[in-house]
Computed example of a mutant assay.
Amino acid sequence: MQFLRLDQFAAHLNETFMVEIDQMRAPFVLVEARPLPYQPMPGLVREPFSLLFRNESAIVFPQRTYNMQNDRMGEFGIFLVPIARDKDGFIYQAVFN
């Protein structure tokens, strides 16, 4: 299992991540990467964090694990949840804890 960290994503704000959706690829732009509050404890693998991505499609994609690829970060699976809609499309969140 790959343990992704906040610092790996923070350097990629406003970059496009391609997501495989039903045999097609859709662009998701990373619009926010922030730490989440937590209590330090023994055995903590990583500090929790949240990512927000924007997709400009008029169709909302369901929450599930998607294969995501970025030219500099490579390919990995990520669980995305649609959380909002704005004038530019839908916002999806990934939470790591």
Score class of each variant (00 low, 15 high):
residue 51 L to E: 01
residue 52 L to Y: 04
residue 52 L to D: 14
residue 53 F to N: 04
residue 53 F to L: 03
residue 54 R to Y: 06
residue 54 R to I: 09
residue 54 R to H: 11
residue 55 N to C: 15
residue 55 N to S: 12
residue 55 N to G: 14
residue 55 N to A: 10
residue 56 E to F: 05
residue 57 S to D: 11
residue 57 S to Y: 05
residue 57 S to N: 13
residue 58 A to I: 08
residue 58 A to H: 03
residue 58 A to L: 11
residue 59 I to N: 12
residue 59 I to S: 12
residue 59 I to V: 15
residue 59 I to F: 13
residue 60 V to G: 01
residue 60 V to M: 13
residue 60 V to F: 08
residue 61 F to H: 14
residue 61 F to G: 07
residue 61 F to N: 11
residue 61 F to A: 11
residue 61 F to C: 08
residue 62 P to S: 00
residue 63 Q to F: 01
residue 63 Q to V: 00
residue 63 Q to D: 08
residue 63 Q to K: 11
residue 64 R to F: 00
residue 64 R to Q: 13
residue 65 T to L: 07
residue 66 Y to A: 11
residue 66 Y to F: 15
residue 67 N to Q: 12
residue 67 N to P: 05
residue 68 M to C: 15
residue 68 M to Q: 01
residue 68 M to I: 02
residue 68 M to Y: 03
residue 69 Q to K: 12
residue 69 Q to I: 00
residue 69 Q to P: 02
residue 70 N to M: 04
residue 70 N to V: 05
residue 70 N to G: 10
residue 71 D to M: 06
residue 71 D to K: 05
residue 71 D to G: 09
residue 72 R to A: 14
residue 73 M to H: 02
residue 73 M to K: 07
residue 73 M to Q: 15
residue 73 M to I: 03
residue 74 G to I: 03
residue 74 G to P: 03
residue 74 G to C: 01
residue 75 E to T: 15
residue 75 E to V: 03
residue 75 E to M: 11
residue 75 E to I: 04
residue 75 E to Q: 15
residue 76 F to P: 00
residue 76 F to T: 02
residue 77 G to V: 02
residue 77 G to E: 14
residue 77 G to S: 12
residue 77 G to F: 05
residue 78 I to E: 05
residue 78 I to Y: 08
residue 79 F to M: 09
residue 79 F to D: 06
residue 80 L to K: 03
residue 80 L to R: 03
residue 80 L to Y: 00
residue 81 V to T: 14
residue 81 V to E: 06
residue 81 V to G: 01
residue 82 P to T: 10
residue 82 P to C: 13
residue 82 P to G: 12
residue 83 I to C: 07
residue 83 I to E: 09
residue 83 I to M: 07
residue 84 A to Q: 12
residue 85 R to T: 05
residue 85 R to A: 12
residue 85 R to Q: 15
residue 86 D to G: 08
residue 86 D to C: 04
residue 86 D to I: 03
residue 86 D to L: 08
residue 87 K to F: 09
residue 87 K to D: 15
residue 87 K to I: 11
residue 88 D to R: 02
residue 88 D to H: 00
residue 88 D to M: 00
residue 88 D to K: 02
residue 89 G to P: 08
residue 89 G to E: 12
residue 89 G to S: 06
residue 89 G to Q: 08
residue 90 F to D: 01
residue 91 I to V: 07
residue 91 I to E: 02
residue 91 I to P: 00
residue 91 I to D: 04
residue 92 Y to R: 05
residue 92 Y to K: 02
residue 92 Y to H: 04
residue 93 Q to R: 01
residue 93 Q to E: 10
residue 93 Q to D: 06
residue 94 A to N: 07
residue 95 V to S: 13
residue 96 F to K: 01
residue 96 F to W: 10
residue 96 F to D: 08
residue 97 N to E: 15
